[in-house]
Amino acid sequence: MRKLKKSLLIKLHLYAGIFTSFYLLAFGLSTLILNHDLKVEKHDIKEKWTKTMDFDRNLPDRELGRAIRDKLGLMGWVIGWNIERTDEELKFTVTHPGRDYHIVANLDDGSIVVSEAPKGFIAVFHGLHFFNGLVPNAPFLLRTWALYQWLALFTFFVSLVLGLWLWIKYNYHPWEGWTFGVLALFTFIIMLLI
């Protein structure tokens, strides 16, 4: 009975761990990137294309940016703080964790120039830390990331608690308990001091 219980707990710990392992990799890498303020995003323009379309020039800048984004079928947020408008054109950026679209819309003839800057794999992997899937114009699959994130956190918690339980119940050594107990207390105190 005891062996059966142990085996079941190990399996549960394992299943929960496997489910959350990819999220942990992204979270771990991202923690290091943030802590050292590493610049991992690439900004080089890799592709440039044009399109002509009708749009309502009387809309406020950001609304017009969103309207153009939607007509172009692009996924991402319109960044509010770098919109530039003159009598002739509207310049703005649409962004998501994997790509920036720098857009110049000619307000006279309706021509749009889109310059694409992919951010690169590491930036995307790092971006999963903050990503909740709720990007404008994102497909359903991407929107499910919010659910995956919620479940990954929950299963990580379950995995952690089960792992600690298995250690205490079946593999506990007093020196480990003391060493890591003191370290845990120390960490907690530092958390209170900042």
């Binding site: 761990g17 496997i18 942990l24 990799l25 771990g28 991202s30 923690t31 802590n35 960490t187 900042i194």
Partner: peptide, 19 residues
Amino acid sequence: YAFLLDMTGISLILFAITG
């Protein structure tokens, strides 16, 4: 605290790989 965060980042990667 920043040092502990570095340790946490490395630990999370180690958790996943060793797991």
